[in-house]
C-alpha cells in the first residue's frame, strides 16, 4: 500500500482545537475476537502511522486496530502552537480513546510511541490491558544526538524542507539492518516535506524530554498487564541494554531480542514481529 492510499483510509477527530488522524480497521476474519479490547499501534519519531502498514493487516485479522498519527506527526495537526511531549501525547491518546468509547486497549508501540505507552501503562493504568513495546525510549535512553540536533530551533530554519528531510532520510538509514526500500523511506517522511511539516517535525524533536521517562521509572514495577518487550539487537539508536532493564523492571514482561535487526525492527524482521505480536495478542484474548 502506498502512503497516499493509506492516507485516504484515515479517519479524523477533533481533540479540542487540535485534530488527530487515525486508521480504524477490523477485518471480518477477526470474528468474535473483534469484541476484545482494540489494539492501538503507536509510532515514534520521525515517522507516522504508515510505519505499521505491514503489521496492520495481521493485527486487524484478530482485533479492531487503531493507528493514530500522534499530534504534530503524520497527517494529524501540525500547527505550531501546542506541546508535543510524550506527556501531552499520552493525555491526547487518553482523550481520544474516551471519544471512541474505549475503556482499555492493547498498546503496541515503537520509539517515542513506546514512551507514550509506558506513560499510559503507569499513569492511566486502566487504559492498558496488554503492552508491547519495541525499541522504545525509556529511562534516560533518549533523546538521541540526531534528534537533539534536529530539534534545535535554529538548526534547520534557513534550510528548505526538501533539503532538511533529505538529510534526515540519509541519517535514518542507520536505523535499518538493510538499506530500506527508497519508496518506503520517502513515504515515512512524506508528511514532513512541506515547510509546515518540517517545522512540525522540528518541534516534535524539540519536545523530546528524558524527564518524562525517568519520572515514571519507579512506577514500572506497578505495571500488572502482560507485557512483551521486542528489541532489534543491533539498534544504534536505542541500546538493547535498556530493553533488558525494562523487561526486568516490569513484572510479567517477556523480553525477546531479535537478531539481524536494528531500530526499525518491524521493517527488518517483519514476519517475526508479526508472529510475536499476533501470539501475544491472542494470548491476551485467551487469558481474559
Amino acid at each position: 500500500m502506498n502512503w497516499r492510499t493509506y492516507q485516504a483510509q484515515q479517519r479524523v477527530t477533533r481533540l479540542g482545537d487540535r485534530f488527530l488522524s487515525y486508521i480504524d480497521r477490523t477485518d471480518e476474519s477477526a470474528g468474535a475476537a473483534s469484541q476484545a479490547d482494540p489494539v492501538v499501534l503507536l509510532h515514534g519519531i520521525p515517522t507516522w502511522g504508515y510505519l505499521w502498514k505491514d503489521l496492520i493487516p495481521e493485527v486487524a485479522a484478530q482485533r479492531r486496530t487503531l493507528v493514530p498519527d500522534l499530534l504534530g506527526f503524520g497527517f494529524s495537526d501540525q500547527r505550531d502552537c501546542f506541546d508535543r511531549s510524550i506527556d501531552r501525547q499520552a493525555a491526547a491518546i487518553d482523550r481520544w480513546l474516551d471519544q471512541l468509547g474505549i475503556e482499555s486497549a492493547a498498546i503496541v508501540a515503537h520509539n517515542i510511541g513506546g514512551g507514550v505507552a509506558l506513560r499510559l501503562a503507569t499513569l492511566y493504568p486502566e487504559r492498558v490491558s496488554q503492552l508491547c513495546v519495541m525499541n522504545t525510549v525509556c529511562y534516560d535512553s533518549w533523546p538521541i544526538e540526531l534528534m537533539l540536533q534536529f530539534g534545535h530551533p535554529s538548526a534547520n530554519r534557513l534550510v528548505s524542507a526538501s533539503k532538511t528531510i533529505g538529510g534526515l532520510a540519509l541519517a535514518l538509514k542507520s536505523g535499518f539492518a538493510k538499506s530500506p526500500d527508497s519508496d518506503f523511506l520517502e513515504a515515512l517522511l512524506a508528511p514532513y516535506r512541506t515547510e509546515v511539516g518540517k517545522r512540525s517535525l522540528v518541534r516534535n524533536a524539540a519536545a523530546l524530554n528524558t524527564n518524562q521517562t525517568t519520572e515514571i521509572s519507579h512506577l514500572l514495577p506497578s505495571i500488572d498487564v502482560p507485557t512483551l518487550v521486542l528489541w532489534g539487537e543491533d539498534d544504534k539508536f536505542q541500546d538493547i541494554r535498556f530493553g533488558r532493564r525494562l523487561a526486568t523492571d516490569i513484572p510479567n514482561a517477556e523480553f525477546v531480542p531479535l537478531s539481524d535487526a536494528r531500530h526499525f525492527v518491524m521493517v527488518d524482521r517483519p514476519d517475526e514481529v508479526a508472529k510475536r505480536v499476533s501470539e501475544f495478542l491472542s494470548a491476551g484474548v485467551l487469558n481474559r
Partner: peptide, 10 residues
C-alpha cells in the same frame, strides 16, 4: 476527487 475522511476534513 474521492478523498478520505481525514483528507476531506483537512
Amino acid at each position: 476527487a474521492g478523498l478520505g475522511e481525514s483528507q476531506a476534513f483537512q
